[in-house]
């Protein structure tokens, strides 16, 4: 246990946490409270009158097929982003973990994408894959692929997943590399002597020993895919074509700010908030256990 710091004055500790507390209160709790209040209100089309409607906004939402579709889509996106990003990052980490010449350079370069802001990621990928401007799109068409994410919903979704997963690879890579390096070399050597070939060694020793890292990253990636993909979606597809790339977060924005339905938008953000609380709760429970194998 850490030794408790002793303060002479009772006010000093409060004064020290006050700036952080102020930020949390103003930028997190206050808007959250606003959202909760707003979710119980209904505004008319012109924003002139407001009525208190209890849970009507929520009930409307749950009856709405579009909302249900957005939930399914969001889960699918999250799953696809998490799995592709995690597996690719793990592959890179395993390769970078080998004693290679210039491995420091690779490692540094692999970390770069993390520093790129999500909207920039979106712009970057759209430049490469835009049906009329993108360089990769040209090759795709030359190979006979009918590539047009501006019209084809599935292709748009693929594009979002690709860009979002790409950005997250760096973060996952860092954790995987650290995880791999914390596995004692002698354990892998023992496995080699015990007759396990590299692939078997990976699946029976390395992978289980990485499982706490994998679980941690899975939760982080899902949260990322839920929320931080907003910038990518907004720059790349704006939720389109149609509603084929509208995720829960994007729907909050489009229904509220573009559609003007503030009550429903607020109710959606409250639901999202509850989801995040649950996810974080799960993560804390497991992180506290530390060893999961």
């Amino acid at each position: 246990m850490q030794k408790q710091a002793i303060f002479q004055s009772k006010l000093l500790p409060y004064a020290l946490v006050a700036p952080q507390l102020a930020i949390v209160l103003i930028f997190f709790y206050w808007p959250a409270l606003q959202a909760v209040i707003q979710s119980f209100l209904l505004q008319d089309a012109f924003g002139l009158s407001t009525t208190f409607v209890w849970f009507d906004n929520y009930i409307e939402l749950l009856k709405d097929r579009a909302y249900f579709k957005a939930i399914v889509r969001t889960f699918f996106f999250s799953f696809a982003i998490a799995v592709s990003s995690l597996s690719f990052a793990l592959l890179l980490a395993v390769m970078a973990d080998k004693p290679l010449r210039g491995s420091m350079l690779y490692r540094t370069l692999l970390i770069w994408p993390y520093a790129v802001a999500p909207p920039v990621v979106g712009v970057l990928w759209i430049f490469m894959l835009h049906p009329s401007l993108g360089i990769i799109a040209r090759y795709l068409r030359a190979m006979g692929v009918d590539w047009n994410p501006l019209l084809d919903g599935d292709q748009a979704a693929t594009l979002i997943i690709l860009a979002a997963a790409w950005k997250q690879i760096s973060y996952n890579f860092l954790f995987f590399l650290a995880g791999l390096q914390s596995i004692p070399r002698s354990v892998l050597e023992a496995a080699a002597i015990d007759g396990a070939r590299p692939m078997r060694r990976f699946w029976t020793v390395t992978f289980p020993l990485l499982s706490p890292t994998i679980f941690f990253l899975l939760v982080v990636n899902i949260v990322y895919a839920f929320f931080d993909t907003f910038g990518i979606i907004d720059t790349m597809t704006r939720g389109g074509p149609g509603t084929s790339t509208v995720t829960l977060v994007y729907k909050v924005y489009s229904d509220g700010l573009l559609g003007g339905n503030l009550g429903s938008s607020a109710a959606q953000s409250v639901i999202l908030m509850i989801m995040v609380i649950v996810l974080t709760g799960i993560q804390f429970r497991f992180v506290e256990r530390k060893v999961t194998y």
Binding site: E189, A190, A192, I193, D194, P208, Y293
Partner: peptide
């Protein structure tokens, strides 16, 4: 190493932490 028909005992034991004692020996 696997094909040399040797067994090695390491200084830090190098046991597989996620396996039971039985599985460590059976691996």
């Amino acid at each position: 190493p696997a094909d040399r028909d040797i067994a090695m005992v390491f200084q830090n034991y190098a046991l597989y932490p996620h396996m039971s004692v039985f599985n460590n020996m059976a691996y």
